[in-house]
Nucleic acid binder design. Structure first.
Lengths: 150, 150
DNA sequence: ATTATTTACTTGTTTTTTGCAAGTATGCTA
DNA sequence: TAGCATACTTGCAAAAAACAAGTAAATAAT
């Protein structure tokens, strides 16, 4: 990283598709394990996913700990540094709500709601995720296509 | 694009490093031509840059027109769809201002200022860029390292 | 207790993308 | 009209991604 542009810095440490999709899965869908990330709609390859999880951990965006109830599982969660990406993810969502014709009305309303009281709601969502929840409810079983709000 | 996740949609159409750096160069530094993008700190390869400009144009983020004063030059500018990425770019900047230790105090203050009256200022910046200006003044000659505010 | 299954990965191999070094076409400039 | 600037393109090597298997440890089923 030869220069100090903040955007370039961000793009180099978290700015690739698979990394951001993992962060999304944790923050918006409450996913926590390798297998759950693997079964996302976008279907990452196992080696790519493993690499991204390692890098995200190395760079301090996520931490992992072994599940005490099932020691095969590793539980991944966001650090403060990772939680602070939520506002950016929401801006991407807001953009897509406006320009992706496939986004449902339901989601556009969600964005409007967020925009109406941006900082208060953002803080609320970060808090929710910090405490083990997820922005779109705490349901991993739900699919992206099901619509965003509980 | 097989599924309808807004984040995934965004990442597929604009979500790679070189595309976002071009958008940044236009919006934040007022750059407009192939040569100006090429001479950015990150030094893209000519073929990659050409490819990204073509894709950004195809996907409706930028438009190009020939410079009337110098017909060798193509002038690139953001469409409304591209301008609407500015809030997301600012969120990445805000994140980096917090987590990249190399960001100068000056830039952190800029972020604080933006945060204090987010929507009003965001609209102002978009307007500035829409009218041919740039967020960090209208100076292409300036370098990223020079500091963000005029 | 043994076998099968689940989970989190690794390890090749192929395919795609990137990055580098040139080269080309067109318009301006001296 | 000779050189130079500008916006590209092309060919090749290197890196990264995607695909297909395989491995090791823990749990579940018989």
């Amino acid at each position: 990283m030869e220069n100090t542009c903040p955007l370039n810095y961000g793009l180099e440490v978290f700015g690739d598709r698979w990394s951001l999709l993992v962060i999304r899965d944790i923050a918006f869908w409450g996913k926590k394990t390798f297998g759950e990330f693997l079964r996302s709609n976008e279907r990452p390859a196992t080696n790519i996913l493993a690499g991204r999880l390692a890098r995200l951990e190395k760079n301090g965006f996520i931490v992992k700990r072994t599940d005490e109830k099932d020691k095969r599982k590793e539980i991944y969660s966001l650090t403060e540094k990772g939680l602070d990406l939520i506002p950016m993810l929401m801006e991407i969502g807001a953009w897509a709500a406006k320009y992706d014709p496939r986004q449902p009305e339901e989601f556009k309303q969600f964005v409007t709601m967020v925009r109406a009281d941006q900082q208060r709601l953002t803080a609320h969502f970060i808090d929710k995720v910090r405490n083990g929840g997820a922005i779109f409810a705490d349901a991993v079983g739900r699919q992206s296509g099901d619509g965003p709000i509980e």
